[in-house]
Design a protein around this nucleic acid. Structure first.
Length: 269
DNA sequence: GGAGTTGTTTAGGA
DNA sequence: TTCCTAAACAACTC
């Protein structure tokens, strides 16, 4: 599930563990989630370390700990973060999908991910790790400009615009539903080649990207609430779903390898 | 049982 | 070389 705003929501789930020390770290190093990660260093550093702060950038999260510990988490398709109150620690049970658990005095901070498409990264040192600092600037920041967006569309001119919006190197945080929502609001057909987006449409696209990101953060990022019924979001998976704008039938197809929903009237053919 | 799932990575081909 | 697509990953639901 997690896209930009959902990631922000999950990041905050661990806030109740801020300033608290990890009494123990539990993980199964065999799972895919830890591929390429120094699990021994992670366990050694985070045990006894305090959680100092966290942030999210696109779909990535970074948790800073004392002892120079930097924990990176990507939720993949089915990952989530939870904080479980430890009422009776002696009878505490963890499921097979609880892949990383930071045991604190009051809460167990858990990374759950049934499909294991997520990822855990770790770095130990005084500064933020390179895999964090090299991430693309947020879509709501001043560094994301119409010019930079258009340059990217031109570079990926042959790919369908839907597929291009899913490229994290330029559109960090956008996932399948956000891409559909943005294209629907911009009235651009999802199969249109990125290079054929008109100047006028690219301005609309730029505007809607920033609007959807801000609104999703405000609505979903705070308490995981549903957006208003005026959004495509609430209609896209309904059988016989209709466009909340023009009331005509919504269409579905696989575009750029992903299930895509659009309005045949508002977005052309 | 088969198909589908709001994400990335990689192999292979154009 | 560069860029695009499909498959793979793993587990669950309908």
């Amino acid at each position: 599930m997690p896209e930009l705003a959902e990631v922000e929501f999950y990041r905050k789930q661990w806030n109740c563990g801020l300033k608290q020390a990890n009494l123990a770290v539990c993980l199964n190093s065999q799972t895919r989630l830890f591929r390429g990660t120094d699990v021994t260093l992670l366990e050694r550093t985070l045990t006894g370390a305090r959680l100092l702060e966290s942030k999210a950038q696109g779909k990535q999260m970074l948790f800073r700990f004392s002892k120079g510990g930097w924990l990176g988490i990507h939720l993949g398709m089915t990952g989530k973060l939870e904080a479980r109150e430890r009422k009776n620690a002696t009878s505490e049970v963890f499921s097979k999908h609880d892949h990383l658990v930071l045991l604190q005095k009051k809460y167990a901070l858990v990374f759950v991910d049934p499909r294991q498409f997520g990822r855990v990264l770790f770095h130990q040192g005084p500064n933020e790790p390179a895999w964090w600092t090299k991430l693309s600037p947020a879509l709501t920041s001043a560094q994301f400009t119409l010019v930079r967006m258009n340059e990217f569309l031109l570079r990926r001119r042959k790919a369908p615009i839907k597929a291009v919006l899913l490229m994290q190197e330029r559109f960090p945080g956008i996932g399948n539903w956000m891409a559909d929502e943005i294209l629907w609001r911009s009235r651009i057909h999802p199969t249109l080649s990125a290079g054929k987006v008109s100047e006028q449409k690219s301005k609309a696209l730029f505007r809607e990207i920033r609007w959807v990101c801000r609104e999703a953060m405000r609505i979903i990022g705070v308490d995981y609430a549903d957006p208003p019924k005026s959004w495509l979001f609430l209609h896209r998976w309904k059988p016989g779903g209709i466009c909340p704008r023009c009331k005509s039938a919504l269409r579905h197809a696989t575009i750029g390898g992903r299930t895509t929903c659009w309005c045949g009237e508002c977005q052309g053919v």
